[in-house]
Structure formats: structure tokens, C-alpha cells
Simulated assay, not measured.
Amino acid sequence: MLIGDLKTTVLKDNGFSDVLPVEFARTQAAVQDESAIEDLVKQVLQEFAELPDLSAEPDSMRKWIGLVADYLERTRKKKALTEAVRALGIADEYLPNRDAQAGVGQFIAQQMLDAAPGGQLMNAILEIAPHLDGDSLERLITQVTPAWISGEVARHLLPSEAGASPHRRTVALNACESRTAHQFVDRAMCLDFGHYWIGAAGGVAVGEDLAQETLDQCFGAVRHLLGLPPDWPLEKLMVRPGCFHFLILTMHRLRPEIVAEVVAELHRVVPQLIIILLTGDTPPTAEALREWRLDEAIVLSPPLGPDEETLGYQLAHDLRSIPDRLNGCWR
């Protein structure tokens, strides 16, 4: 806020060019007593929503919140942001100032990414969708799709020590669809695409040598994951520096000895792989892990509830359908 006759050129000349984009109004310089000063402060502060405290969040989470906030703030109708907050189940007394010019997007972004229930997240996006350009809407949907997953649970996919490189790490997830595991990875990594890669393999082999066919499938996926041409020897496989590499394996229909052989061989060749084993609707028991010779595998806990994967899959489908539905292409 510029007071009195202060000109923007004065700010530029004194090194304050960075604050010019947040100039909202000009007021007179009649600040003569304490009450007038308080009124002026209130006038300035009402232009900003009360921002959530992100000091305890890791850098990747702060970056994710900031990116989602950027897409939200492109909304052409600012009232839609207020309605989106209500759709997230936030009571009116906690709503940010509807006339605020800054900070509303960050407030909503944190609420969306704080494991928002799927129905509320869907309704919030529907409030905003008609007032965003198509590209921003699609990118926003990509960013918020894994928000139904608990970040605390998803982070168990990663080594417990920050910055540590994974070594023969295997994680069991009670899910059937590789897309579900993909969303767990996205959630764990805060969609920081420059630092992780995901591949998937598995299913039911149909030949006589099930173990070898399954291995061939898996190493084909690893080649694709690591960008190795199909005719090059496996010895040339190289992981990308500073990146996690996840391989999602659908193995719950295979015999335990085949699972054990496949996981052991994959980790022998590429020990840095984080292997995510999809175990079907129920998490594996300690006995099952012993049969797979995976006693040290991490089982994500708490496990997905009976309908949770179905609802998550449905949410992702419905969110992705919004742009087409807005354009009438879904009929």
C-alpha cells in the first residue's frame, strides 16, 4: 500500500521493485494518532488471507502446496475459491477474508492436500473448474488426485533417513491396481517429478516357465524405467543420480516361490530399486512374507480399508473427467 504522495519510481530507485506486484491501493498520509495507525494496519492486513503455518512441512510439501496454490489463484471468479473452501467442509468462521487479494490459494491448497476426503475434494474442484482455463484445470487435477491418501502412510515407501539411498527395499501394499500404488508414490514424493520414476510389471504369465516369463516381464519394465534399449545387456543399467526408482509388481496371483525369485533377482541386478508389491485386498501376514523370503519387507500401515481403493480409483476417474464434462464431451 502506498501512503500519501509516495511514487512507485521512489520504490524502484531505492531497490524495492520486488514489492510492486503486491501494490493494492493508495491511501492518504493522515496517520496522526495510534488509532489511525491501527486502522491503516487493518486496512493492509485485510488484503491478505491468514496463511497456514508451513514451517513444520518438508521442502517438497511446501513446494507442492505452492504449486497447487498457483493454479488455484488463476481462478477468474474469486468467489469460487470461497465456495471451494466451504466444499472442503471448513466452517464459515475459518474462511479466509473473501476480499483478500493474496494468500487464499495457499490456504485452500493446504486444505486440499491434507488428506481431504474424496467427496469433498471433488466438490471443491467442481466449484473452481468453470472459472479456470483448461490447461490450469488439468494440471490442478493432476496435482490433487493423490490427496485422498495419507501422506504419513505413503512416506513409508521411502527410506526413513532423509537423503538415504534405498537398498533392496521392498514395500507391500494391499491393493490390486498399479494405479493405486502410483498414487501412493505421487503422494510420498509430493509430485516432485524431477526426483522419481515409476514402472510397473506383473500379472499372470501364461507359459510353461512362469518364473522366467515373469522375470522377463519385470526386466522389460526395468529397462523402460531406466531408459535402456531392449537389446542392450542388463549390465548397462544405470539409476539416475538423485532420483528414486519405483517398480510396482502385481504378484498376488503368483506362487510364493516365484515372487521370492523375482524380487531377489531384481534386487540383485538393481539394488536401488524400491519394489512395491501389490498383495490384493488384504495385507500380507508375517507367514506370507516368510514364504516370499521377504521377512524384512515393509507393510504399509494402516492398510487400505475394504472400499478405499475402489473409492480412490473412482475419485481419480471422476476428477479426470471434469474437463471433458465441462466441454460436453462426456455425453
Rank of each mutant, 00 (worst) to 15 (best):
G103D: 01
R139G: 00
F24Y: 14
S60C: 07
E287M: 07
A164F: 08
G89Q: 11
F48K: 11
Y196L: 04
V206N: 15
D209S: 12
G66C: 08
E287T: 13
V153I: 09
D186K: 08
T82V: 13
G119K: 10
M1W: 07
R331Y: 11
W148V: 04
G4V: 04
N174I: 06
E296M: 11
F48R: 13
N14P: 02
E73Y: 03
I65M: 01
P284H: 04
F107E: 02
G202P: 09
F244I: 05
S150W: 02
R320V: 00
R98Y: 05
E235F: 04
I248V: 10
A80M: 00
T214L: 07
S160N: 03
G15N: 06
L45Q: 14
L278D: 06
G105W: 04
L277N: 11
T9S: 15
T9L: 15
E38R: 12
R76K: 12
A260E: 10
V299W: 02
S321G: 05
I90Y: 13
Q143K: 15
R325H: 09
R253Y: 11
S55K: 10
Y196F: 14
E177L: 11
S35R: 14
H245D: 01
M61G: 10
V299Y: 04
K7I: 13
H182D: 12
F184M: 09
P230H: 01
E127W: 05
A36I: 10
G207T: 13
L210S: 15
I65F: 04
Q120F: 02
E127V: 02
E296Y: 07
Q143D: 11
V68Y: 03
E47I: 04
Q314H: 09
R62M: 02
L173Y: 03
S178K: 12
I276T: 03
I258C: 08
G15I: 00
R268F: 09
V171W: 03
D318Q: 07
L215D: 00
V259Q: 12
E161Q: 14
H252F: 15
T214F: 02
A181Y: 10
G305L: 02
S60N: 05
T27S: 14
T279G: 00
D135F: 06
W330L: 14
R320T: 05
H252R: 08
Q272I: 01
M112E: 01
S136I: 04
I90N: 09
T310I: 12
E50D: 15
V10W: 15
P166S: 08
A201R: 09
Q143E: 15
